[in-house]
Design a protein around this nucleic acid. Structure first.
Lengths: 204, 204
DNA sequence: TCGCATTTTGACCAATTGGTCAGAAACACG
DNA sequence: CGTGTTTCTGACCAATTGGTCAAAATGCGA
């Protein structure tokens, strides 16, 4: 498989199955904890067949990360400089929390990777993501300077949005254990809390 | 080594060296990614000698986690129901952030474990930690009811404090990569941001 | 210094795991 | 059908890794 993109129907189906299985296994066990046997079983293929489509375990992981990166940062990319500052920021917060709810595996995949020093995605963070953050921070800075939002450090504001929203995906077990007997679905109350919290933070 | 606590001077020295090395290795690579050889080399002992002091890799990990758990939740335990609500909460926030700065390895150790479903510490979370959170949440609730702090869900408030402060330790690489060229020490600005953020959230 | 207990180690083992390979099976198509 | 290509597999391999063990080295009190 040295072709860049899947061509035949079989290739499409199998690479998709591998990516799905890999997301499951890698997000649950981390890179080192995941085994080719686990991914093979989960995808319904044999181990040698896995390696027919991808040259190595690391190649699967890299392909997975780079394929998901764009989706993951899409909400920030969508932040509109022309829109109303408060509305734009709050809907960014909402969408980020929604992503934690809808794609917890993706969140954990990145969390696993970054907590361990991002050995396999440092480049895309320090280049692609940094460039995007630089761009959007400038916008937040103008909004802040113009008194449209409170005077806060734009980068740390973004960190806090990531931290709070992704926490609900990454630390899901802990949250559910602690909320046990109090709330059925953490995300219901989370949505309300996160909304009011950030509204207070960014309102001038 | 079936003795509960180290007795001789040699035992004290070596178990301490093992714990220190284990913290280093486990927090950096996660449980599966850490190897006995790595821990052995880092502690200056031979692998069989490691296993003279601890029966297994898992035993080292468990001992490490349970030994650190109490230190980790100490700041919350110190929250004083008699003190001034705003002051108490803000100093809890400050101490939590300080711990992220002073003990990032401990933070990452727990993060690694919880992100992967806390397979080796679910009990202490769902029992010890839950009990503590239940107790402190009740205090926050009275403060909230009495109008001493804003009306917020106490448990989610705690989650947000954990999320934001620990984010600076757990996602350290990402933060430094993004801040590169803008801030030398992330924690300086972090302290200011986190402080004002939570002040806004909890002020009635 | 003697003698016993503690500590340390080299050699070794079995299981796991990422990866290879030759050939079989399935498929596409003239 | 026949044939060339794609897909798939069982058998196998070498490296890693958690753990064992008998024996050697060391520590230490009397």
């Amino acid at each position: 498989m040295d072709k860049k993109r899947p061509r035949t129907r079989i290739q499409m189906k199998n690479t998709a199955a591998i990516m799905e299985a890999a997301l499951d296994i890698f997000s649950q066990h981390g890179f080192r904890g995941a085994t080719l046997d686990l991914i093979a079983k989960s995808s319904g293929l044999s181990k040698p067949n896995l390696l027919y489509y991808f040259p190595s375990k690391e190649a699967i992981h890299i392909e997975l990360l780079s394929g998901l990166m764009e989706t993951w940062i899409a909400p920030l990319r969508a932040l509109d400089p022309q829109g109303d500052p408060i509305t734009e920021l709050m809907s960014y917060v909402d969408r980020k929390l929604q992503m934690s709810q809808d794609y917890p595996r993706e969140s954990r995949l990145f969390a696993n990777e970054i907590v361990q020093g991002a050995p396999r995605m440092f480049i895309s963070i320090s280049e692609d993501l940094k460039a995007l953050v630089d761009e959007k921070s400038a916008i937040l800075q103008t909004w802040s300077d113009d008194g449209k939002i409170a005077k806060v450090n734009p980068r740390h504001l973004l960190f806090s949005i990531w931290a709070l929203t992704q926490h609900y995906a990454d630390f899901d077990v802990q949250i559910r254990a602690i909320l046990d007997g109090h709330e059925e679905d953490p995300f219901e109350e989370a949505r309300h809390f996160v909304h009011t919290a950030f509204l207070r933070i960014i309102t001038p």
